[in-house]
Design a protein around this nucleic acid. Structure first.
Lengths: 213, 213
DNA sequence: CCGCATCCCATGTGATACTG
DNA sequence: CAGTATCACATGGGATGCGG
């Protein structure tokens, strides 16, 4: 059984019993990006103790949120359909928490999966639909992401490749996403460093990915 | 400071730092119904230890989610605008958890605030808009609720009063809301007991409040 | 009496070490 | 690589105390 119960009978309480334990929703967040092996999850959650990761994986399985799947000799964890229904909730949490994001503390880490979800959170499909298909390569701290926008579709994966615009940015990119910092200024101030391609495309990026602060 | 941090820099993590601690979202849930005094919160969360309630209230304040407000000699806690932005998330959690709600265990309690939020979760405004304004009095376990639906507007408050339909129900009402149990059968089987008014109105109720299972 | 604070103990968490 | 085992410690749970 998952987390200790609250002694109440209602949907919110039930949900918290299933995914309200510490670390649980961060595991779900990473699995929303794709199936992951135990070690990959551990790498994406650097500060989770291995025993807690093992416990959560067990609980989430019993809750019907994730499942162990054998994939050609290795085990991966993946969301069940019921677990995947958490996507709008996780994205909503991300949008809500984004507004309270200050500057990163020294100890804080940026992981590829977290950034992928952040991009999905900020993605404005209806805006993107009216823009030309564009591919970006973004180096966000230690995360290298290949971002392809095609109409209202978004595809984010790890790695680099041939793209229309490649750029690197630190945490200051938050202010670009929130609209506090104009694309031009982001480049001029060095918050965003254009590696390849025309810098003007950063404007399109900022139009495509936006979250109010 | 709120809960211990996870060492990551992203919106989901930030959100969980602010409202991810045990009991925190249940406090938010109850405050979504209206401002509450300390004792009212404690009554609505029967199993929360007083020290934990006090700690959470302090943390949620520092997180900017709630605020203490003096109301004519007494202190009430209420959501800040930022805290109120959690409403869709809490309702979403409720809808998600509803699907995993089995039958209540012996120890589990039903509180008025939790039921109020459950009704908001299940409310279908667009359906209600096409139905005549209706008032219901529902006795759900120990919770007595006065439910007024007027077009796309829903108002739920405690107490009884003059209504079109008054009924009492046990936890079996879950199956009415999920559509597993037809209104007629609910009455015939005794799951719902009509106290006043025409039983046919229970059909309208079931149309207005619905959550897929 | 309401709004907490204190105390004590059970349990969950965190860091590290260890094993199949 | 994929977990288990161990142990110190922080937090949660329950009862009780107490000042305004």
């Amino acid at each position: 059984m998952a987390g200790r119960d609250y002694g109440q009978y209602d949907g919110v309480t039930r949900a918290l019993e299933l995914v309200g334990e510490r670390w649980a929703l961060l595991i779900v967040r990473d699995l929303l990006v794709g199936p992951r092996r135990y070690g990959e999850l551990a790498a994406g959650l650097p500060r989770i103790p291995s025993n807690v990761l093992a416990a959560r994986l067990k609980e989430l399985q019993e809750a019907g949120v994730i499942r162990r799947a054998p994939r050609s000799r290795v085990i991966v964890y993946e969301l069940t359909p019921y677990g995947r229904e958490l996507e709008p909730l996780v994205l909503g949490l991300g949008a809500w928490g984004f507004k309270a994001l200050g500057d990163p503390r020294e100890e804080q880490v940026v992981t590829p999966d977290a950034m992928t979800i952040a991009l999905r959170t900020a993605f404005r499909a209806q805006i993107a639909a009216s823009l030309p298909a564009t591919a970006y390569a973004a180096r966000l701290g230690p995360a290298e992401l290949l971002i392809r926008v095609d109409g209202p579709e978004l595809d984010v994966r790890r790695g680099d490749g041939p793209v229309d615009l490649a750029f690197a940015a630190g945490p200051g990119i938050r202010r670009l996403i929130s609209g506090e910092l104009a694309p031009r200024l982001a480049i001029e101030s060095g918050v965003v460093e254009v590696l390849r391609g025309p810098g003007e495309l950063l404007g399109r990026f900022a139009d495509t990915f936006h979250l109010a602060a």
